[in-house]
């Protein structure tokens, strides 16, 4: 068995693949680097696969916390791991939009290899953190944000890209009587706009897919498509794509 672990800023994800590269376990724990989230997620995945750590032949760590995780045989960046995961799950994809807790990136693939990528600057604009803050202001669970946005009847623009300023902007909108649903959709559009700018910098390809926790927000995926004027789909198991990629790398490294 081969294990991939993706330790992000707000969650830890683990995937295990077997000799035939089939995913036999995938777990997400909402605790990121600096917590014991990595160990908890790993144990949960081992339990799901019905194995122990001794059965694992090779471990690849990725994500923001990859260098601090001492059980890994090797560390590979989330850029390569997302590319590898997507290549396995959606082989014909050539553009990946990954929005995670504290970063957003767009990766261009050519022949399955990373050709170019761009990541957000040192700033939370256009990342999952932005939506977290928004859902707090809207008093909604992050996972319900999409359903709420679906009820929107009016396009409301959030003009600030800065998370802190956007928060006060939204509070003023709500105080002015704007509907929660419209604000929720506005937040999705704000991210979509920002990330679409990044897509244009690296150039979008023919098939665009989304990974990362934010891709669970269906309304967000549709906002992204609307902004780009192109079809965008969420990769199945979007949260664990990086971990799956890492597990496949573990398989390949072991058999090299």
């Amino acid at each position: 068995m081969f294990l991939g672990i993706d330790i992000g800023s707000s969650s830890s994800k683990v995937a295990i693949v077997d000799e035939n590269k089939n995913v036999v376990a995938a777990k997400v724990v909402n605790m990121g680097t600096g917590t014991n989230g990595a160990d908890v997620a790993m144990q949960a995945a081992l339990d799901e696969a019905g194995i122990t750590l001794e059965d694992v032949k090779y471990i690849v760590a990725t994500g923001y916390g990859r260098l601090k995780f001492d059980k890994a045989d090797v560390q590979i960046t989330e850029i390569s791991c997302h590319a590898k995961g997507v290549q396995t799950l959606v082989p014909d994809a050539d553009t990946i939009i990954d929005i995670g807790g504290q970063d957003a990136k767009v990766i261009r693939l050519a022949g399955g290899q990373v050709e170019n990528f761009i990541m957000n600057e040192k700033c939370a604009a256009g990342t999952g953190r932005f939506l977290e803050v928004m859902s707090r202001v809207l008093n909604t669970d992050l996972k319900d944000l999409s359903a709420l946005a679906d009820q929107s009847t009016k396009a409301l623009a959030i003009s600030s890209v800065c998370t802190v300023f956007a928060e006060s902007e939204v509070i003023s909108s709500l105080a002015a009587g704007e509907a929660l649903a419209d604000v929720a959709r506005g937040a999705n559009f704000a991210i979509a706009k920002r990330v679409a700018g990044m897509c244009k910098r690296v150039g979008t390809g023919k098939k665009i897919v989304m990974t990362g926790g934010v891709a669970l927000n269906d309304n967000m995926v549709r906002s992204m498509a609307a902004e780009l004027g192109q079809e965008v789909t969420a990769v199945p198991h979007c949260q664990v794509v990086g971990a799956i990629g890492a597990a496949i790398f573990a398989h390949e490294k072991y058999h090299k």
């Binding site: 923001y64 560390q75 590979i76 960046t77 989330e78 850029i79 390569s80 290899q113 990373v114 990528f117 990541m119």
Partner: peptide, 9 residues
């Protein structure tokens, strides 16, 4: 992360 990604490429 960026440097390591460059190494991988």
């Amino acid at each position: 992360t960026r440097i390591q990604a460059l190494v991988e490429m």
